[in-house]
Design a protein around this nucleic acid. Structure first.
Lengths: 362, 362
DNA sequence: CTGAAAGCGCTTACAG
DNA sequence: CTGAAAGCGCTTACAG
């Protein structure tokens, strides 16, 4: 069954206004006007075009639109490859808020050393702004920020502080630790086991600074009030690490009255070690985590933790990032800080007294 | 200090090959050749251009490139707004694999009723293919798939089965339940409490089918071997729901020997209810979850669960999606099924015997 | 409402 | 290596 003529408009996929105009039987110009809601068109023409869109599913080529000057309305989001639950929550929240404001998100997971390629891709896509989520190699991200400045492309770093010249919104980890320690000190705790705080990362140093300041209010110092046994165990799996370090603390002759963990997984490991040693939490020892993940409600006892206030972070990110678009670059970086919320649950309580309830099971 | 001449190339942001060529002092054509690695260029010219790229950070406009026929190398990913941990893992895994293959990801979170707008946006961005992650309203997604077919744009649905004409990769939930029940039956369990299986969703029906088939192998039927008390409690928070329903089972005169939960959160709630009732798991009752989330390792006892095998799912997705690109659309949909992996941990064991160890604490 | 034309930023023959 | 030109898919005055 030979067919001579090219297929009628029936099934061919339409990929340009030219083809589409031919299909509807109108001039390209007219079609373009309808597509862009310009005034001065017959209702009948509009209806005809609309029907044709339904029939063909035609969408104008965004690439041509942008060449003609339309904003891309796209934000590049660069997220580090360590995808922790809080980081994913921020990513999801940011994406959703951007979408509500009619911005598309171009998302790339970046490994150390890979940010240059990603940023160049984002720039070639003429994104309106770029957000970074996570903790990056400081030198590397500082270089990216510098490039973006000379490019006059707005940026925002979420979670990492201390990058010179960078706009940032970050959790005030020092304040979080200050809150937690002020509370524990008020509960008469004086000896603290820190689990997982051994690192030169800025975020850990900030936390130690917060602890120091809370201790200072009681005339205590970090060396006299806190101890670490991190060096005794490798940190591969946070839960197992917390369990192992806590076990080491328990085997010690002088168990601190409170174990403070870098994150919830480590804290849950510590809870487990306590249970295995038949120590009752918080009667015998208090345990606190960080991040306030959903699991904190599922442990026995429920875990005291610091909430990252992700919705606040996302809101701040939107408010810092979007107003930069289309305006001259600010000379001074914008930095906003989010205070964590201390969520006190069952795993922390008054410090055990030596002559009161027993520290160790009989 | 009036300035008469326009600023020298010094600080102006360069946004086109024309400006850039002027900056380097070469013809646009030559610059384009260097940018695209064409042969027949003096090393000196290449070096000059490369240096200028370093200096200016110039990136060619991707929109113009594509207009000239370059592939967008972009995949649209549509994810439902119920961002469960496994769904996020799939999103992150897919994004990472695509990136390794030099595809960019355009990601949008979609609410019920919102898929049309998202797909139209993706199409206007001339994506090479579209992936859907999650469970969508069947009628709505069926409509999208139909549109994509007429558009000759490849698609893949991850996690949802039963959409007519759709390419899909999905977890074989029936097989998962079959595995779990075969194991529990071998452990002499004969009475099962199902928690959270009350739903007309296809994924739940599939699971019940799997249970039915495992029971049939022992000449048992769903009505005689399983019970549900879902109707007694509202399901707002899965953990609390699991706890409440399990408590109701415990208060019953005939506690099943195994509680099987729809997901890990519900199972952890059930574990909690058991602990509160001083029932020992698995001595007095076995408990199993679904998804094998990280928390399964953090509970006491550690939770038996079914692993979604996310890496397998992601690999299958890549292998189903990418080969479709640039080829004529296949007439028959591609459907691939991933078998969950039963991970047996401490929360399940032999069924208690009535005349052996006590079912309830004395 | 139509049609011809210019131009967005690129690449790619083509003729020097 | 250069330069002029065409064309990708659009929008937007401009003249009918």
């Amino acid at each position: 069954m030979p067919v001579s003529k090219p297929a009628a408009p029936a099934r061919a996929v339409i990929r340009s206004t030219a083809e589409f105009a031919r299909y509807v039987g109108l001039a390209r110009t007219t079609v373009s006007r309808v597509l862009n809601g310009k005034p001065g068109l017959k209702p009948k023409t509009i209806a005809k075009v609309q029907r044709a869109i339904e029939e063909t599913g035609f969408t104008p080529n965004a690439y041509a639109l942008h060449l003609k000057g339309k904003r891309t309305a796209t934000i590049g989001i660069c997220i580090e490859n360590l995808l922790t639950p809080p980081a994913l929550l921020k990513l999801a929240g940011l994406q959703q808020k951007l979408r509500e404001r009619n911005y598309a998100s171009l998302i790339e997971v970046v490994e150390p050393g890979g940010s240059r390629r990603t940023v160049r891709h984002f720039l070639s896509m003429r994104v309106d702004a770029i957000a970074f989520i996570g903790h990056f190699v400081e030198e590397e991200i500082a270089q990216r920020i510098h490039e973006l400045r000379t490019h006059e492309t707005p940026h925002l770093i979420i979670d990492q502080v201390g990058v010179p010249g960078a706009n940032a919104v970050a959790l005030d980890r020092a304040d979080g630790m200050r809150q937690l320690f002020a509370y524990l000190l008020a509960q008469r705790h004086r000896s603290f086991g820190l689990i997982g705080f051994t690192s030169m990362a800025r975020s850990v140093r900030d936390r130690l600074a917060g602890i120091t300041s809370a201790l200072a209010a009681e005339n205590l110092t970090l060396p006299e009030a806190t101890r670490s046994l991190d060096h005794l165990h490798a940190r591969e799996n946070d839960f197992e690490f917390g369990r192992a370090v806590a076990r080491s603390f328990i085997e010690t002759s002088s168990l601190p009255t409170a174990l403070v963990a870098l994150n919830d997984e480590i804290a849950i490991g510590a809870l487990q070690a306590c249970r295995e040693a038949k120590l009752e939490v918080p009667r015998d020892v208090s345990v606190a985590g960080f991040n306030n993940q959903d699991v904190c409600l599922m442990t026995t006892p429920q875990l005291t933790s610091l909430d990252q206030q992700v919705p606040n972070t996302v809101d701040a990110a939107i408010n810092l990032l979007l107003p930069q678009i289309g305006r001259p670059l600010r000379a001074r970086p914008l930095v906003q800080t989010i205070s964590p919320l201390l969520v006190i649950r069952e795993s922390t309580g008054p410090a055990p007294t030596l002559n009161g309830r027993p520290r160790r099971p009989a």
